[in-house]
Nucleic acid binder design. Sequence first.
DNA 1: AAAACTTAGCGTAAAAAATACGCTAAGTTT
DNA 2: AAACTTAGCGTATTTTTTACGCTAAGTTTT
Lengths: 239, 239
Amino acid sequence: MANLNPHVSVDCVIFGFQAGKLKVLLIEREKVLWGRLGGHKLKLPGSLISESEDLDISAIRTLRELTGLDNIYMKQFGVFSNPARLSPPEDLEWLQKTSGLMVDRVVTIAYYSLIKIGESNITEKTIWHPVDELPELIFDHNRIIIKALEALRREIRTEPLCFELLPKKFTIRQMQDLYEAILGEKLDNRNFRKKIRPMEFLIPLTEKEMEVNHKPARLFRFDKKLYEKHRKVVSGFDL
Amino acid sequence: MANLNPHVSVDCVIFGFQAGKLKVLLIEREKVLWGRLGGHKLKLPGSLISESEDLDISAIRTLRELTGLDNIYMKQFGVFSNPARLSPPEDLEWLQKTSGLMVDRVVTIAYYSLIKIGESNITEKTIWHPVDELPELIFDHNRIIIKALEALRREIRTEPLCFELLPKKFTIRQMQDLYEAILGEKLDNRNFRKKIRPMEFLIPLTEKEMEVNHKPARLFRFDKKLYEKHRKVVSGFDL
DNA sequence: AAAACTTAGCGTAAAAAATACGCTAAGTTT
DNA sequence: AAACTTAGCGTATTTTTTACGCTAAGTTTT
């Protein structure tokens, strides 16, 4: 990797959907072998940018290294620049030790991305943590996640983001559960189906779901090409 | 001012509404007294950030210095980080000369802000330029403006941003003209009125507009406090 | 094997919001 | 005085959203 720019970093809020809950991927901060720094604080994946890289590329690289996945949906949603954001002091100390740089102020560009947990292949030591009950994270990472969630809530209403979080084959019910988890409100199943079914880019499969202890539902897949074609006529996706 | 951080800058896309058109505030680049650099290229207001400043504060300061205004609506909408964005070479040369720094890569955080042209007090040598017919600007500033306009179009549908662009006292027709200018489509006057009039935070005044050569319309003002109170009940402003 | 239970999946009726368009009044310019 | 422009209110129609009834298909319990 080229030399690092110690003033600008990229942080990624990686969302996933599992067991009916929206989750975030967190990394356990490497322990610093020193006095009271033993705590297991968690952090978002991220890194300082290298001098010659576009930020989007930085973020994509960070994600590929971490998840082994390419073609991940990702969106830049905010910048965090408070000069005092690298606190408390022990967190800053940790950063200086692990990076080997005398950083003291870093402006970070934050991305959120959406991945299918089942199909990812996470290598590093990471934790999928439910977003609604996060512990205290390093630096201002709690705040970054809150802002990411606000952006996701806003954008999932008008763009077909849910298909990035669902498996390739999914049921209408799973789709509804996902919306309910993200928006934090119950939806009427009958009306939800009525709104979803006419969408031409939702392709019904002949298969049905397996291993559920009730009437199995039909599986669907999302046809991206059809969606792109359709969105020019009407103006896109809307819930 | 504290010492500058030569890696990060702030640029402001300042929108105003005048003569039925949406305009952007541009600055004429100081000429470099040298060979073929004589051209009068235009640029967005902006500057490198100082080491100890939050970016929002940087942007607010930039705006106050330029317009003499405080309490301006402003919103961070994007980051531009292409390593090659400081091109063509003569533009970069100009930046190095005027800043006195050997910058070669700058990540810029972009804000758009909305001001009432009539009530501002612009001091520097600036130009209000219609957004729909911009010349070629310095660096990637054309692209930044396009992205700003996209953000504004999106956000003006769900937030009461129009009142930041209109004078303190305005008519329904002016409001409609503004929406038409920003959204780029004609709206039906009867239906527009029907939608706007019931909004409780729009206070009718006893005054009417003056100096128009047709039936004068009633003036209104926007009551921000009432809006804040009302938005908690229903969920905000929507066009 | 029957009964009880859960979820899938289709349908109808009422309420609310968006759209299309008619019309008069108040002022201006010709 | 006639012609014209914009303000400002109204009504009818269509579309979208919301609320809720119901049967069928499968699973689990008795």
